[in-house]
Design a protein around this nucleic acid. Sequence first.
DNA 1: GTAGGGTTAG
Length: 730
Amino acid sequence: MLLFNHHSWPLLDPHTFQNLLKACISQRNLLAGKALHALFFKSHNTNHDISTYLSNHFTILYSKCGTLRNARSAFDLTHHPNVFSYNAIINAYAKHALTHIARQLFDQIPQPDLVSYNTLISAYGERGDAVEALGLLREVREKCLAIDGFTLSGVIDACSGRGVGLIRQLHCFVVMGGFDSYASVNNAILTSYSKEGFLGEARQVFHEMGYCGRDEVSWNSMIVACGQHREGSEALALFCEMVRMGLEVDMFTMASVLTAFTSLKDLAGGMQFHAKMIKSGFHRNSHVGSGLIDLYSKCAGSMLECRKVFEEITAPDLVLWNTMISGYTQNEDLSEDALCCFRKMQHVGFRPDDCSFVCVVSACSNLSPSVGNQVHALAIKSDILYNHVSVNNALVAMYSKCGNLQDARKIFDTMPEHNTVSLNSMIAGYAQHGLEAESLRLFELMLQKDIAPNNITFIAVLSACAHTGKVKEGQKYFSMMKEKFGLEPEAEHYSCMIDLLGRAGKLSEAQRIIETMPFNPGSTEWAALLGACKKHGNVELAVKAAVEFIRIEPYSATPYVVLSSMYASAGRWEEAATLKKLMRERGVKKTPGCSWIEIDKKVHVFVAEDTSHPMIRKIHEYMGEMLKKMKQAGYVPDIRWALMKDEEAVTAEEKERKLLYHSEKLAVAFGLICTKEGVPILVVKNLRICGDCHNAIKIISAISGREITIRDTHRFHCFKEGQCSCRDYW
DNA sequence: GTAGGGTTAG
């Protein structure tokens, strides 16, 4: 665009120079801008006004082009920075998530104008800091500056995710102030309603905008809202309408449509759409690519496909990398790959942002605790914890999943502020560890502090009640959900209620829930009922639950295994054998039990009766000795838990020996051998802990004087001085 | 000189 050379500079009059710089700014032409900057230094321009004008505009240029360092030095060289260049540099810091520096600069502006306020509000909006954003809004009003659409969309964005009540208030404010004709404001309101789980309200905003009041962003936002609420066909209908109306369809639209397919788990539809996009070249776009990667990782579980998509992208951006990391994270077996991807991303020059950390930290929940510590250290070094509640939340969840409730609480107590997710993570952490009193106390605190609970909060609260048999409380919270907070219970809440009632022995009430719930019950609900039947020995209801379970998930071993062991316990051997035969014929395979433990940053894996570990002889010897002591302390092996192949005729002694070599016992024994007196032990298991192991480890904890924690697929069992944190209610 | 639409935690 700029054809000149520096020799022509003396001939370039200041106004032409100004115009050229303006052109650089509007076209974001960094290269030409830098050339102009070099000329500016050589020019020794004596006109003070023009010189000031130009200095200010160089700050704006660099800020817009995203080169923060250049922007800062241009800003520092400006003797009289005007409000324009202040605003530009504040925005640049905000875009780099350096809100505290943005704030410092804002405080230096002699007379901040509305744009200054808007810029800072949107910076707080980006990090969801409602308190600061609302404070600034108040200031704007006190100064009698006229609020505009930018102000409000920033404030709404900041308040998004803090409960629908706040959004309703803001919506009211918008209508009263006559801002409901601003597309941007309506778009922000629409999105906030959707994020809070209120699709109806989002839809209403969209409809009230009318065709003339909408812009492309409105359509895209509504498509995303539908996708998030699994209204995929509505999303697609909107997309078709957009095309029919001749509206511009861009990368955002494409990405939005993809979220609809993903939420519907409609892989085939998504793939067709992918094919169409290949024809139009959209598939090379990073925005669209992240939608595609999300689709393939969530619906196909195929990271291979994701990698193919990734390789097609012309200019991968940070979001694309984050989506890849998140894809690996969602697949528990690929947590290591998530970590690799995180490293690679940094290697090619991307600085991980809050999202990257959130994804990688949650992958660490499936890895050894020391990896989590390392990533935590990196987060501290990257200075990301101060600014991002989300990363702190992920750390709380990671530490509690890794069995380290103390560190989880430490982070929770030191984080700069709490939001709904923070409370959810901590409440769920306590619930998983069987500390329901702490869980419920925190929930009450949440209500006192006016932090709005959401669907996830209630899952944690209800599961805390279920884990400890607090039926009445559970029922109270279940009805509170809808009555007090307008939250519609989802399938998972019904599962919790079935679990709560079932475990407490109220089987018919649990059955009634499953029969009357407003969805078709899935395998989770039947599994909860089946588990309850096993606990309370109701074979007839168990058969019904198992049949339904198998109908939904024909290849899951759970219903077969549970039901056959129930038959065996009831002495109904023939039926137990028939079931096992059926299982074989149908090719249903039982997942082998497997436990792991980390010693000196190395993970040791044990499979039941596995003899491949180099120290296995020593472990067996140790267990033999331990068994003697255990028996003296009153341990009676519960051979019902020794699941044998039906054709094997086995003696009680053989069964006892098999029990002794269950994976969790081997891992615990290994831990006891390899660590010093008094060091707590953490073992992770891929299935639920077996009843005999539960009993045995209680006794081992007393004999060895150690704290032993087992994390199974349902919860934590923390054994100490002969007792388990679950108080045997599991 | 400033916004709202793609990825993320429980």
